[in-house]
């Protein structure tokens, strides 16, 4: 049990009688990259929202680092080091790139409730923020207003901001959604780099990315787990192949 950073037991979420997530049991091993795949509407995003408590589960347990976190607030979950990204780029659009990262760094300074201090007291964080931006290749854009960044760079900034809170477990919701090939490669490299010493759980549609990054893959369908294992195991599973039949993903899956 000690090697599991996160374990989920019997997690269920009902919306007006419809089970979006149905009795899901999931274990995420410490230090691994774990991918969640499945057709649209399989409950991946709902599961993410449950894990970060943006939704309350109807039943079931979430255990993180041996502690039951099922009843905690979203911000408490984040303070434990479970940091999520969102499908739509999660940035602060009208702040500069540097300010975005600084918001994440600011919490550890302990002055976030100080109404009377000058904002210039945050400048002590600038160097650290620049280092993080450098690590994702955004250093030269530090003064840009975020809304003007390209889509791929916004996603990179999002990862930089997530890194800034030094997460124990990163939850990435479709990190390459809507990206072109170049950007996808860049994000792939980035995830590989930041995964050192961290645990990552991600929802992703791009099978080549999943194939090359993920240690374990869990396939969801209609709210339940269909299969679980390494890429080669999952790709051979007849149920999985059937589930993807008639779906665009079948070809992507077939490539490998």
């Amino acid at each position: 049990m000690s090697s599991n950073l996160l374990s989920v037991e019997g997690l269920t979420k009902e919306f007006n009688g419809f089970c979006a997530v149905d009795n899901v049991n999931l274990k995420v091993e410490k230090g691994s990259i774990h991918a969640l795949i499945g057709p649209n509407g399989a409950g991946k995003s709902t599961l993410f929202n449950l894990l970060t408590k943006f939704l309350d589960p109807s039943s079931g347990k979430i255990i993180f680092n041996g502690q039951d976190i099922t009843r905690e607030q979203p911000s408490q979950i984040a303070k434990r080091g479970i940091i999520r990204s969102f499908q739509i780029s999660a940035v602060f659009p009208n702040m500069t790139v540097l300010e975005n990262v600084r918001i994440a760094l600011q919490r550890k300074l302990g002055t976030s409730y100080h109404l009377w201090k000058s904002v210039s007291t945050l400048n002590t964080l600038n160097k650290e923020a620049m280092d993080i931006l450098d690590s994702v290749g955004l250093a030269e854009f530090s003064d840009t207003i975020t809304v003007n960044l390209s889509y791929g760079r916004k996603r990179a900034l999002e990862i930089a901001t997530t890194l800034a809170v030094n997460p124990v477990l990163m939850l990435l919701d479709e990190p390459t959604q809507g990206m072109g090939h170049e950007d996808i490669d860049r994000v792939k490299e980035l995830i590989k780099r930041v995964s050192a010493g961290r645990t990552i759980l991600m929802v992703e549609h791009n099978m080549s990315l999943v194939a090359s990054l993920a240690d374990t893959i869990t396939v969801l369908q209609r709210g339940s787990i269909l299969a679980e294992g390494s890429y080669s195991e999952v790709a051979k599973d007849p149920q999985v192949i059937e589930a993807y039949m008639g779906n665009a993903h079948v070809e992507v899956l077939g490539e490998h």
Binding site: S75, A78, R84, N94, E99, H114, V119, V165
Partner: peptide
């Protein structure tokens, strides 16, 4: 102020501010 920065963050993207632990 540092507090004002967090308010800005909330205005711009509240779910993100929550997910960063605020």
């Amino acid at each position: 102020s540092p507090y004002g920065q967090i308010l800005r963050a909330i205005k711009e993207n509240e779910p993100r501010a929550v997910s960063l632990g605020y």
